[in-house]
Simulated assay, not measured.
Amino acid sequence: MTARDLSAFTLAGYDKGRSKAVQALWFAVMNTVFSAWFCPARLRVAILRAFGATIGEGVLIRHRVRVLWPWKLTVGDRTWIGEGAWLLNLEPVTIGADVCVSQEALLCTGSHDHRTVDFRYRNAPITVEDGAWVAARAIVLAGVTVGRHAVVGAGTVLSKDLPELTLHTADGTRTLKEPQQ
């Protein structure tokens, strides 16, 4: 195996999607107003929309939520994003309707290719389909789709697609029943 040379790393193939000025403005707003406890949830939604996110109706975003790039975020109607959740979206994150992303969950679209000397990016989008639940402190990794009404259990790491109506826990996966009306 060839030794890793991090000095050879570049941003090749990664497009942040906005100018450095817009990126800086977003970081300033995110770190002073957006994530603050005193910022109303409706204002958080308005701020994300102002920075290019597509956000549905009735969305609740709690305080201390971090979003790397709002312009790479789509959220469906009536979705909840819990306190301290981190949407590390170097690539698009698409969250469906009636989804719950619980406290301190991490959706991470970024990764590196450990097989290359320059440790280049190996990023991929994440999709969380309608009715899914990403429980507290769960981690969803790059390139993964969480199926309709699936559950990513608290504290687990999901590195491959989770079919609809499936529960993923530290003990494995099992099929769920259709939600009751």
Rank of each mutant, 00 (worst) to 15 (best):
Y121N: 12
H168E: 09
A97D: 03
L68I: 06
E129V: 13
A3R: 13
D118M: 09
A142V: 07
G56H: 07
C39T: 09
R62T: 03
A46S: 11
M1Y: 08
W86D: 10
W69C: 07
G155I: 07
A41Q: 15
L165P: 04
A24H: 06
M30K: 04
V67P: 01
W133N: 01
V117I: 13
E104Y: 05
D98V: 13
W37I: 11
T79Q: 05
I55T: 06
R115N: 12
W26T: 06
D5M: 15
R148T: 13
D161E: 12
G155Y: 01
V144N: 02
I95Y: 00
R64D: 00
D98Y: 05
E83F: 00
H168W: 09
N31P: 07
G76W: 04
G172P: 02
L11W: 12
A46Y: 02
T109F: 05
I81L: 01
T32Y: 01
H63T: 02
H149P: 10
T127S: 09
Q180G: 13
V29R: 02
A36V: 14
S111Q: 07
G153N: 08
L48D: 02
C39A: 13
G52M: 09
A8C: 08
A28D: 15
Y14E: 13
G76H: 04
D15F: 03
G17A: 09
C108A: 09
A28V: 14
L48T: 04
T127R: 13
L88Q: 11
H114Q: 08
G153R: 03
V117K: 11
W26I: 08
H114M: 12
L11N: 11
T169A: 11
T10L: 13
A28G: 14
R115S: 15
G110R: 06
M1I: 15
T94P: 08
V146H: 01
H149K: 09
G82E: 00
A135K: 03
T156N: 07
R122W: 03
L6S: 05
D130L: 11
V140I: 10
G96K: 06
G84S: 00
V22D: 07
L141T: 05
F27A: 15
E91N: 08
G96T: 03
I95P: 02
N31Y: 11
D130I: 11
P125Q: 07
A8T: 08
A135S: 11
L162A: 05
G172F: 07
V134T: 05
A50C: 15
R148V: 15
A142D: 08
H149F: 09
V117Y: 02
K177E: 10
L162Q: 03
G131P: 04
G96C: 09
G172N: 02
C108R: 02
A8M: 11
M1Q: 14
V59A: 02
I61L: 00
I95M: 03
K72G: 09
